[in-house]
Amino acid sequence: MNNTIGTRLKANKMALFGGIIVLSLFFAAVLAPLLAPYDPEAVDRHNVLARPSRAHLFGTDDLGRDVMARMLYGAGISLSVGFVSVGIATFIGIAIGAAAGYYGKAVDAAIMRFVDIMLSIPTFFLILAVIAFLDSSIWNIMAVIGLTSWMGVARLVRAEFLSRKNREYVLAAKASGASDLRIILVHMLPNSLAPVIISAVLGIAAAVLVESALSFLGIGVQPPTPSWGNILSAGKDNLEIAWWLSVFPGLAILVTVMGYNLLGEGLRDIFDPRLWNERSR
């Protein structure tokens, strides 16, 4: 009988664990100005590449900046890139997927062809080209990641809409004269949200990885603005002397991505009715 979302969330350790990680990251990012022991951009020429110590828990980088402070501020960067780019991707994906699923036929065929084409492009190449041609501001990075990662959501929404467009409640809404937009937004979309939310959570993990890779390659977030990827880039340049520059930011990315993945997969189990009775709870 314990089948409310709340109890299932508590019972699902994956989702719970992932949720805790995501929440702590959120707090770390918001409270960074209070938590950070130093100014993340304060250069200290006398303390270059200092080993982790009580004064600098995660050591300092090649300009003597405190790595821990930079990582705390970097959490905000990676979080906002993740949320904004996935927001963009989800919005586009819902619009395109809904149009394909609701109108069907030629509209659907044309849209799905376009989706297939987008899926065949090595998107990382395209992202790299666009970011390198534009200037690598954080807004450009968000926009480009969003514009190249909406295809999964579009497919999901389309499939949901195709399977629902002839249900009684949709036909009833149509018969009572509701507009297409109203049927899509009010009657059909709320019923299709679960898979969209799951894929958005997993999408944030992917976006965090892409952002860190771009910053690592030197075309993402530009120093002095701190990001986990650009700290790692400094780590590569000082590989032989400063292990702390590579180890800590990488761990942060790992934990973040794992947090979102656990939350997403956990939510998938929670929303999947086939699993509700399978486990004895």
């Binding site: 990885l209 890779a213 790692l232 180890v247 990488g250 990315i253 790992l254 973040t256 991505v257």
Partner: peptide, 21 residues
Amino acid sequence: FVGFAVPGFWLALLLMMFFGV
């Protein structure tokens, strides 16, 4: 889950540090 979340370039740095340096 861990393998999924490891950034490839970070793994590369760690392996370079361990096996190389």
